[in-house]
């Protein structure tokens, strides 16, 4: 159903990032690069969850009456 489509799309992206994050951590030898990559993946996932699931933009939006 269309109203739930965005949720599953975001879920698929989160799943891909999580798997890539894991493979990246296992295979990258440089500590700094690995740390920065993991931090970037974490921020990316947090932004996706915050924007699409937690509707952070609604905090600044006036309610329609």
């Amino acid at each position: 159903m269309d109203i739930f489509k965005i949720g599953w799309t975001v879920a698929a992206i989160l799943a891909v990032i999580t798997v890539v994050e894991y493979i990246f951590a296992v295979n990258v030898a440089n500590d700094t690069v690995r740390f920065l990559g993991l931090a970037g993946a974490g921020v990316g996932k947090a932004v996706l969850i915050g924007y699409f699931f937690m509707h952070i933009s609604r905090v600044w939006r006036a309610e329609a009456h």
């Binding site: 109203i3 739930f4 949720g7 599953w8 975001v10 879920a11 989160l14 799943a15 999580t18 969850i49 699409f52 699931f53």
Partner: peptide, 16 residues
């Protein structure tokens, strides 16, 4: 993975 999946089900509940 389970916790991320639970976020989707929670989102589904709210959207529903």
């Amino acid at each position: 993975s389970i916790l991320l999946l639970s976020s989707v089900t929670a989102f589904t509940a709210e959207t529903a």
